[in-house]
């Protein structure tokens, strides 16, 4: 059986909120290392990969592999019933029909309990090879969100060009064009504002802003976001969570006609 207790319901609320517009039904794969999720969006150009390590829960118990097929709209409805600071416990039997969610207030004696019916989801799994990326950019997640939103006002696509000069986000559309360039930057007092660019070779790729703006819904999960790029491979957008847990998004690049 599965029993996984999260100190704060907020973590799961934010994760589900960040992915629910990309994927609708998905399996939460539970085993002794934690709870993982991998799902492609309908158009098969974006992939969500979440890993909540067992260390992110206290306690965490999962005796055997269990796939919880959950509709994220249903999960969102139930998670809305939890206060952000509630303690959240996920429970399921070994061959479950439902997943049980218990919300406990740390400050009062309230205990809420919900069951969500599970679905049989036959999901295609993509193998993601370990990739040595040509460019890795760490930057404030709020900054990345602003850039994506700003450029989306002008265009559907953004080109991300990384050279030793810095990283340039550029777009052009019907009303004109725009760009934002960032250089490496270290803020000793506020390291969350650092911009770090690790480059082994120059990269230039074009991506759909609609997806990037969608990924940025995860900004509340982490002060920093990591962008990993190599020519002609999908972009990796990673929000690191505590205990080596993560929320990753992959996006296939656009190509010329």
């Amino acid at each position: 059986m599965l029993e996984a207790r999260l100190e704060q319901a907020n973590l799961l609320k934010k994760v589900v909120d960040a992915i629910k517009d990309l994927v609708q039904d998905c399996n939460f794969d539970c085993n002794d290392s934690g709870i993982a999720l991998q799902a492609m969006d309908n158009s098969h150009v974006a992939l969500v990969s979440m890993m909540l390590k067992s260390e992110s829960f206290s306690p965490f118990r999962c005796d055997r592999n269990i796939a919880l097929g959950i509709n994220l709209t249903s999960l969102t409805k139930v998670l809305r019933c939890a206060a952000n600071e509630d303690i959240l416990t996920l429970k399921a039997e070994d061959a479950p029909d439902v997943v049980n969610l218990v919300f406990e207030s740390a400050e009062s004696d309230r205990l809420s309990e919900y069951d969500i019916k599970l679905m049989d989801i036959d999901q295609e799994h993509l193998g993601i090879p370990e990739t040595e990326y040509a460019a890795t950019i760490s930057m404030p997640s709020a900054e990345f969100q602003k850039i994506c939103r700003d450029l989306m006002a002008l265009s559907e696509s953004v080109s991300i060009e990384c050279t030793k000069e810095g990283v340039k986000f550029a777009c052009s559309g019907d009303i004109g064009s725009g760009s934002v360039t960032l250089r490496s930057h270290t803020n000793v007092e506020k390291p969350q504002l650092n911009v770090e660019i690790d480059l082994s070779e120059p990269v230039a790729l074009t991506f759909s802003l609609k997806y990037l703006v969608n990924f940025c819904k995860a900004s509340g999960l982490s002060e920093q976001v990591r962008l990993c790029l190599s020519n002609e491979v999908p972009l990796l957008v990673e929000y690191a969570l505590s205990n080596n847990s993560y929320l990753r998004f992959y996006l296939a690049p656009k190509i010329g006609d």
């Binding site: 150009v45 974006a46 992959y250 296939a252 656009k254 190509i255 010329g256 006609d257």
Partner: peptide
């Protein structure tokens, strides 16, 4: 730039 390639072209179905 118009065509968005599918992820399956990059990752393998397992």
């Amino acid at each position: 730039y118009s065509q968005q390639l599918a992820l399956e072209l990059y990752f393998y179905l397992s």
